Amino acid sequence: MCLGIPMTVLAVEAGSAVCEHRGERRVVSTLLVGDVTPGMHLLVHIDTAVRVLDAAEARSIEAALDGVQAALDGRDFEPFFADLIGREPELPPFLRAGAK
């Protein structure tokens, strides 16, 4: 399984960017997402940016990753998924009946 990690752009180079996640810096290819600027958030898979994220979405992914770690550690993980607690699961719009 491959997880996408939200990373923050620190510096831009030709076709790549120096990005950081929780203190770890990596050079990430930006060829799939186009031009980026310092401060932007990117969803990164195997050192390749696959999507630009807004700050709220980056925080949501960070919380989910923290929740997975809490579950693996045997700790309470529900607070990390507050947006999912108390509601029925929903299919994304493109998978719902009648979607085109």
Results as ranks from 00 to 15, higher is better:
Val52Leu: 08
Pro93Ser: 14
Met40Trp: 03
Leu95Gly: 12
Asp54Tyr: 04
Thr37Tyr: 03
Ile5Arg: 08
Ala63Val: 02
Met1Ser: 11
Arg22Met: 13
Val27Met: 09
Asp66Ser: 10
Gly23Cys: 10
Val12Phe: 08
Asp83Met: 06
Phe81Tyr: 13
Cys2Met: 15
Arg22Ala: 14
Leu42Gly: 09
Phe81Asn: 05
Phe77Pro: 01
Gly4Ile: 05
Gly86Phe: 04
Phe77Ala: 12
Ala82Cys: 01
Ala82Asp: 13
Ala97Tyr: 13
Val68Trp: 05
Val68Asn: 06
Ala56Met: 03
Glu24Asp: 13
Cys19Ser: 07
Ser29Lys: 07
Ala58Arg: 02
Pro6Tyr: 02
Leu43His: 10
Met1Phe: 10
Arg26Lys: 11
Leu42Glu: 00
Ala56Gly: 11
Ala17Asp: 02
Ala70His: 05
Pro79Tyr: 07
Glu13Asp: 14
Glu20Cys: 13
Arg25Cys: 13
Leu42Asp: 00
Glu13Gly: 15
Ile61Val: 07
Ala97Trp: 14
Ala49Glu: 04
Ala97Leu: 15
Ala55Cys: 04
Pro89Cys: 10
Pro6Phe: 05
Val12Cys: 09
Gln69Cys: 01
Ile46Arg: 14
Val68Asp: 06
Phe94Arg: 04
Arg22Phe: 11
Arg26Thr: 06
Glu24Trp: 15
Leu95Asn: 11
Ala11Lys: 14
Asp35Trp: 11
Met7Ser: 10
His21Glu: 15
Leu32Lys: 01
His41Cys: 04
Glu62Ser: 13
Val12Met: 10
Val12Gln: 09
Met7Arg: 11
Pro6Arg: 02
Glu20Arg: 15
Gln69Gly: 03
Gly23Ile: 13
Cys2Val: 14
Val50Glu: 03
Val28Met: 06
Asp47Asn: 15
Val33Gln: 02
Ala17Tyr: 02
